[in-house]
């Protein structure tokens, strides 16, 4: 019994060590965001500011209007996450629960679409948007989320659905339920964990997107958080204390979302089992 406890302490200590290393960049971000310029650049480095300069945050806000960026980012992210959840679940349902011709081929095609880097298709897609008369704004950024939601998400949801006994569908079908009712009334409540996982992955994807907004957003007042952060990096040197304060602000909402959903998050992946 005693060795068990010792083991537990040793393992925890090992994890704590790794965890500290993992947190170090966060620490460095936070510590730099509270320093004066001269202090940040001290060498040997100073590990914690002598006086904490919380004023860096308000002054960073004049360069990085977080509220506006946040709203813009949300206006893109929220509908996109919804679209991804909706259409990836639909696709996953078909691939996991229905037998139909060319199912394998469809599945392979969907997965293969993951292989093409997005940077490559910027120009043809942009030209298409120009052709339909919407060369910019939020719509071109949100629209693709309603088109299946990406191979990775479809795959994750499909795996999760495969783990749910098919008897449930059969029983519902006996009661006269169609596919939509089976999906919405029977399966959806069980899908909560994987929906949260997919939602979180999707959220982070959109939260961090850089190239999309660069191409499609042309008005300063529509800038997103990731863009605002990238804008700090001018051609000639960088104002680190401001950029660190801005980075801390940019990370915060994502962290909050994570903690809100974390209880279900791992479960969503556990139950999907990721078996083929």
């Amino acid at each position: 019994m005693k060795t068990r406890k010792m083991n537990r302490i040793a393992l925890t200590a090992l994890l704590a060590l790794l965890g500290a290393a993992c947190l170090f960049p966060f620490f460095w971000m936070l510590r730099s965001s509270l320093m004066g310029n001269a202090e940040i650049y001290n060498y040997p480095p100073v590990f914690w500011p002598k006086t904490m300069r919380f004023g860096n945050y308000p002054s960073a806000l004049t360069l990085f209007p977080f509220g506006r960026y946040f709203l813009n980012t949300m206006m893109i992210t929220v509908p996109s996450v919804f679209g991804i959840l909706l259409t990836s679940t639909m696709a996953a349902y078909a691939l996991a629960r229905i037998d139909f011709p060319f199912k394998r081929a469809m599945f392979t095609l969907v997965i293969a679409s993951m292989l093409m880097p997005g940077t490559v298709t910027i120009i043809p897609i942009f030209k298409a948007w120009v052709a339909v008369g919407i060369p910019g704004g939020f719509i071109p950024l949100i629209f693709p989320a309603f088109l299946g939601g990406g191979a990775f998400n479809i795959f994750l949801s499909r795996q999760f659905l495969m783990g749910i006994p098919k008897d449930l569908d059969e029983a519902a079908r006996m009661d006269g339920a169609g596919h939509v009712r089976i999906l919405v009334q029977v399966l959806l409540p069980l899908l909560k964990p994987v929906l949260i996982s997919v939602g979180l992955f999707a959220f982070i994807l959109y939260w961090n997107d850089l190239l999309g907004p660069l191409i499609y957003i042309s008005r300063n007042e529509q800038n997103t958080i990731a863009q605002g952060l990238a804008n700090f990096r001018g051609g000639f040197g960088t104002d680190y204390k401001a950029i660190m304060a801005a980075s801390c602000m940019a990370v915060a909402p994502a962290v909050a979302i994570y903690f809100a959903g974390q209880k279900y998050f791992i479960e969503g992946i556990v139950l999907s089992g990721l078996k083929s």
């Binding site: 790794l18 965890g19 993992c22 947190l23 960049p25 966060f26 460095w28 971000m29 730099s32 982070i204 939260w207 961090n208 850089l210 958080i225 990731a226 952060l229 990238a230 700090f232 990096r233 960088t238 950029i243 660190m244 980075s247 940019a250 990370v251 994502a254 962290v255 994570y258 903690f259 974390q262």
Partner: peptide
């Protein structure tokens, strides 16, 4: 949570630090 956290940092933020 600690080990998951870096995943949600905007890549541009990670790059900078």
């Amino acid at each position: 949570s600690i080990f998951f956290l870096p995943f949600i940092v905007p890549s541009i933020g990670a790059v900078i630090v």
